[in-house]
Design a protein around this nucleic acid. Structure first.
Length: 468
RNA sequence: GGCGACAUAGCCAAGUGGUAAGGCAGAGGACUGCAAAUCCUUUAUCCCCCGGUUCGAAUCCGGGUGUCGCCUCCA
């Protein structure tokens, strides 16, 4: 089955056909590294991490590129406030990015280019636009002439005139058209700069993504993705400048995530409700955050608060409990020959894998895919009520969770964990007490362990423990 | 003024023409020394409202209401 996805370019769900068979280039707009990234950013990075994982699962060879914007007005301002250099600032928050991203199970991209490492490529691209008459230089500032590119507005779905009509910004009077945007910004006194044909300055925000994405993935990308608020103007501008320069289509499929709100409000500095991943991680298991973010379709708006996270935790726990049980069975239970009920279970495993794939094929419907995982969980639990299991079947189930769980980046560790000897001893003591029908003592130990975060379950195969 | 998204049970959330997935929470039961986990049963005669198309609509069309967003840096 082919993957279908929603393309912002035409607002339709299309079959995904990469430019080169079985190879995919994806570029995702990364963070401006002037602060810790927030939960809204996280949704974007996470969703496209899953897109990447699923395409790999389908057998595509994916080249995944996510940039760091490490020079920009906000960077300069923040560095001044913190009294450090822009590059020190970048270093700090790039490191922080990797920490938080890793916690959320977001894999590293194949390339994490930084704008400052590609100044030459950026200048070359701007020069090309200037040469073609699509950009103009005014006293060291270079602007893209939006009227020179016919398709301007095609991503946004609006005509250039309509965009202008609503614009209530202070327009730089030197620009030819209000919508023209900066490709190169002249450096102010004492600001960091690079030499260019137009004098000392730095790149504008939009041009870096065009330069870097084409550098790594060629002049036409399979997928370009980012947050919803990047559609305009950032992505619109990228299209204009890239296609203006190359004369080729820039991107085949544009993908954008939905918004994430905090308590139904947009995150904003003025409301002071920005939640960083770093903060959230202090309170909640990041995998719960991941599970929560994947429990709705990626294009739907999603509401975030800690109560909802708590609900999500319950669901993820159900999945984890089963996996723990399966691992325990493999360790302890006897193997029995394959019989009819085992074969039925194998058929169900196949069925739910298929359902999972169908959901993911359908514009990465992770909510539906997770439902398939839950249905498999129920079937497995029913199967486990049988006394005699075939361990091959158990292994097959585990493999399935391993592979499908890996697509979503949930269920990261399918390994049996070692216990502290001290806790092991307590469990033994409790078993003794139970044997002697000293239930008061047994329950006391169980409560003690619970406080240490260890949950005990008495099963026909003996006592089983798991972390709360 | 232009453009757009969303509205499904107490909560979260799939489903885009064939008669309401899944999860969380709740209730009852089974299992258990008691629990936990798990299983079974139960929780929307109906999908914001009003019209229309259709044999048939949560799903399509028209109108309305509500919430949110973009058009300005923003994931």
């Amino acid at each position: 089955m082919a993957v279908k996805l929603f393309n912002t370019l035409n607002r339709r769900i299309e079959e995904f056909v990469p430019l080169k068979e079985k190879q995919v280039g994806i570029y995702v707009c990364g963070p401006t590294v002037y602060d810790y990234f927030h939960i809204g950013n996280a949704r974007v990075f996470l969703i496209f991490d899953v897109v990447r994982r699923y395409l790999e699962y389908k057998g595509y060879q994916v080249t995944y590129v996510q940039n760091f914007t490490d020079v920009e007005d906000k960077m300069i301002k923040r560095a001044e406030e913190m009294d450090i250099t822009v590059s020190e600032l970048a270093e700090k928050f790039i490191n922080a990015y990797f920490e938080d991203a890793q916690a959320l199970g977001i894999r590293k991209a194949n390339y994490h280019p930084r704008a400052t490492e590609h100044i030459k490529d950026i200048i070359k691209l701007i020069q090309k636009l200037v040469d073609k008459g699509l950009a103009y230089n005014i006293e060291g500032d270079v602007y893209f002439d939006t009227t020179s590119y016919q398709g301007y507005g095609k991503l946004t779905g609006q005509a250039l005139e309509d965009l202008e009509a609503g614009a209530r910004i202070e327009v730089d009077q030197r620009k030819k058209n209000p919508m023209d945007f900066a490709l190169w910004k002249k450096a102010k006194e004492d600001e960091l700069y690079w030499e260019s044909p137009w004098g000392k300055g730095r790149p504008g925000w939009h041009i870096e993504c065009s330069a870097m994405s084409m550098q790594y993935l060629g002049e036409t990308l399979d997928i370009h993705a980012g947050g919803p608020d990047l559609i305009f103007p950032h992505h619109e501008n990228e299209v204009a400048q890239s296609e203006g320069a190359t004369g080729k289509p820039f991107v085949k499929y544009w993908m954008h995530a939905g918004y994430l709100n905090i308590d139904k409000q947009k995150m904003s500095k003025s409301l002071g409700n920005i939640l960083t991943v770093k903060e959230i991680r202090k309170k909640v298991d990041p995998l719960v955050v991941r599970f929560f973010l994947l429990s709705a379709h990626y294009r739907s708006p999603i509401n975030f608060n800690f109560e909802l996270l708590e609900q999500a935790r319950g669901g993820l726990e159900r999945l984890n409990t089963l996996i723990h049980t399966l691992l325990d069975i493999i360790e302890k239970a006897d193997n029995y020959p394959l019989d009819e009920k085992d074969r039925e279970m194998l058929a169900k495993v196949k069925e739910y894998r298929l359902k999972f794939e169908e959901s993911m094929d359908d514009d990465f419907n992770t909510a539906d895919a997770i439902a398939a995982l839950f249905e498999l969980t129920k079937e497995t639990n029913i199967y486990l009520k049988e006394e005699k299991q075939n361990l091959e079947v158990i292994n097959k189930i585990l493999d399935t969770y391993r592979e499908l769980g890996d697509v979503l980046g949930l269920i990261p560790e399918l390994k049996k964990e070692e216990l502290d000897p001290e806790i092991e001893t307590l469990i033994q003591k409790r078993q003794e007490a139970r044997k002697n029908k000293d239930y008061a003592a047994a329950d006391a130990i169980r409560d003690e362990l619970l406080e240490k975060g260890i949950v005990l379950e008495d099963t026909p195969q003996g006592v089983r423990w798991r972390r709360k």
